[in-house]
Amino acid sequence: MSDVLTTFESSLDGLDVATTRTDGDGFTGALDDAIREPAVGVPLGLDDVSLADTAVTVDPTAAALESARTGVTPVGAGIATYGSLAVAADAAGSEPVSLYPERHVAVLREEELHADMDEAFAWLGEEFAAGRDSYVFATGASATADMGEMVEGVHGPAEVHVVVLER
């Protein structure tokens, strides 16, 4: 178990975000446990795991996106000290899928974790250079205090769950 992963989990815990660690074999089960149906998603783009055998509808319609309870997306990076997830505004639709449903399940390979903001921005610089130049660093559930006290789940998700594929 790496220190970075431990830090990441502890940061997420502080944000009330649960983490599931799994691997290629356990992925389908872990993901199905993490979602609340109906769930929509975008392709994970990973070699050893996919959403194919899960209950997630990939490439959803606008109607499915609107009514889904869970959105599943890969994330490009995690930032351990902050518990942040880098969601790409990509052609597959990771941005709206991670944003519209009330629950966001993010799938991340342990290798994609960065210790801190320095490392994350170094990575982001490489992404920008490669033409992938739109990302959201999402940290915990959406929140507002505008109605008198802190409420989670405003325009963005009320719950976030991270599935980490261990090395």
Binding site: V42, D59, P60, T61, A62, A63, L65, E66, Y82, S84, A89, D90, A91, A92, G93, S94, E95, P96, L124, F128, D133, S134, Y135, V136, F137, A138, T139, G140, A141, S142, A143, G156
Partner: peptide
């Protein structure tokens, strides 16, 4: 850090969202 630090270099690649054509996949 805030919940969202959005860094977009638009126009973005995100598919347009056609809520008025609900059956069109992304």
């Amino acid at each position: 850090i805030t919940q969202y630090v959005t860094m977009l270099s638009p126009p973005v690649e995100t598919p347009t969202l056609e809520f008025d054509e609900p059956e069109t996949p992304l």
